Amino acid sequence: MRWLRVALINLLGIVVALALGEGVARLAEPKLAESSNPIALVDPELGWVPHPNAHSHGVSSEFDIETVSNELGNYDFRVPPDLDGRRLSILALGDSHTAAAGVSTGQAWPKVLQADLEKAGVSVWVHNGGVHGYSLDQYLVRLQRLAPIVKPRVVIIGFSAATDFYDVGRTRAGNFVYGSDIGRIYFSLDGKGELLEHRELVGRKLGRQDGTTPLLSLATLRGTLDHLALYRLLKRSAFAMWLAMRLSTADEALWPGLDTALKVELAGEDRRRFDLASKLIGRIAEESRKAGAVPMLVHIPYLAQVYDSVWQSSFGSVRGYDRDLAGKRLGGIAKQHGLLYVDAYPAMRDYVASHGGDWVHYPIDAHPNVTGQRLIGDAVFTVLGACLEKNPELKPDGCR
């Protein structure tokens, strides 16, 4: 009984300490992002799409932004008429790194690219087709919908190293990363490594019988812990990242997409994710060329790649990872499938190194900030500008 009382007292002390810690963390926590209007509609094939002609005001401790959507249902401004029919049309696809979270509509990298091209004397409209939470599966379907409308001469895939190797690996049985209970089109590989389209989940509300995230998993645990201010405060600390790397498994990791992107040896689920991502990028490139467009692939790096302190506390603290590998792998995919390739990683790392460690991402939100978006847009402009000089008619295969 004495030992039981001691154990109960110790347990009570731990509970009280955690409760106090949670209270202090909530008082100290920076304001999380709030939006006046999420501007999204349910879509049976894509899961969700931006609500057309809408407006949202987003506020957090790190930003105060205005987001609009246009008549095409893009996070973009209203498209002006092309009076002489000579305007270059470019379509950017991607997730929240393209849409883009944390910056106002005019500051997203597709609009930076548009401004750069206009300064160079090009009449152009860059359609921002990025949508928060989208995966490569949805990029492909989005292209199929938008290409006949905007008739792009260039199609750009904004590939997020943070999630795009992870999202694609989760769509084989309705076990989606974002909107796990929302049915949609998804893709897999058959026994011969060919792409298969699946439509059995289209328009359905999913439950656990459909393969959504099980109750007992690291992903579910992360989702539960994210409701705690104490966890949110500590999860990017050096110790928390060091510990998380040692709790990782083949399927669950600190940053699963980046884990696949940077892991030296790919096997099992990592290899399947990589192969499926490569096939989807290849299909997007193929359909872009059929639509008369030059396909491009843009590598958008994440925190552990760009910042020495984050790298050393996470992937750099264990063996088997290469900080530069994501860019090399994506470059290899681009070469294999004939896409122009843009790597924003060197520009971001060089900027941080030359500006005393200034961040080009929001430390809490983790998306590229205004400077980060500008660096991505400028990097795309450099490569696309060279393509235009070499191939002014923008023949789909003229810039390889």
Score class of each variant (00 low, 15 high):
46 L>Y: 00
200 E>N: 12
117 L>S: 03
161 A>W: 04
382 T>S: 15
3 W>N: 15
383 V>G: 08
202 V>P: 07
50 P>W: 03
6 V>F: 12
347 A>V: 01
188 S>H: 13
141 V>C: 09
284 I>C: 08
7 A>R: 06
368 P>S: 01
307 Y>N: 01
182 I>W: 02
351 Y>S: 06
368 P>Y: 00
130 G>M: 04
34 E>P: 07
262 L>H: 08
298 V>N: 03
301 P>W: 01
144 Q>H: 11
118 E>C: 10
73 G>T: 05
276 L>F: 05
52 P>T: 02
17 A>H: 06
390 K>Y: 09
21 G>T: 05
3 W>R: 15
59 V>Q: 07
4 L>N: 10
218 L>W: 10
113 L>C: 00
71 E>D: 13
35 S>W: 04
97 H>D: 14
30 P>D: 02
28 A>L: 12
150 V>P: 01
299 H>N: 14
32 L>F: 07
263 K>I: 11
104 S>G: 03
322 D>N: 03
371 T>C: 10
397 D>F: 15
87 R>N: 00
345 Y>C: 13
120 A>D: 09
229 A>H: 03
335 K>R: 10
55 H>R: 14
139 Y>S: 12
60 S>C: 02
167 D>L: 15
381 F>I: 10
113 L>V: 02
23 G>T: 06
212 T>V: 13
